[in-house]
Simulated assay, not measured.
Amino acid sequence: MNETEGTLTISAHPSPGGPVVLRLAGELDHHTGARLGHAVEDLLHRPGAGIVADLSGLYYCDSTGITTIITAHDRARATGSSFCVAAPSPAIVQLFRMTGLDQILTFHPSVEDAVDALSNR
């Protein structure tokens, strides 16, 4: 899967350890949030050990993007899967801390750390 629309690119990359790395690049906002939701839903219908959202390429996130990430996390938990965030930029980390998202999600400094954490669950 590799989709580009507007200013958000989403691509899925299975990792050898089990989780799928979902790479986001660009802007996650009211124009693009639904696409992330659909991508997560598609992955949750496949057997696997979870989803790592690689935010290293994400440079903007509005309230719709935050809601989409929370929904992805909740949907993963509801299906017995896991969802975590990896490699967010300092600006995205600050946004997530200001909104309390850091109290809900597990953040990892790198994709490798996130894959390792989900693989060892």
Rank of each mutant, 00 (worst) to 15 (best):
M1Q: 14
T4Y: 07
E5F: 12
E5C: 05
E5H: 10
L8W: 10
S11L: 14
A12Y: 06
H13W: 07
P14R: 05
S15Y: 07
G17V: 06
G17E: 14
G17D: 12
G17P: 07
G17C: 09
G17I: 02
P19F: 05
R23K: 14
R23I: 15
A25L: 08
E27C: 12
D29N: 15
H30N: 07
G33A: 15
G33I: 13
A34F: 02
H38T: 15
V40H: 11
H45Q: 13
A49L: 07
A49H: 10
D54R: 01
L55I: 11
L55T: 06
S56H: 11
L58C: 05
Y59P: 00
D62E: 08
I66S: 01
T67I: 05
I69K: 03
I70P: 00
A72T: 06
A72W: 08
H73V: 10
D74R: 15
R75I: 00
R77T: 05
R77E: 11
F83E: 00
V85I: 15
A87F: 10
S89G: 01
S89R: 03
P90K: 13
L95D: 01
L95M: 09
F96I: 06
M98C: 04
D102Q: 07
D102M: 07
Q103A: 13
L105E: 04
T106H: 07
F107Y: 14
P109I: 04
V111T: 09
E112T: 11
D113C: 00
A114P: 03
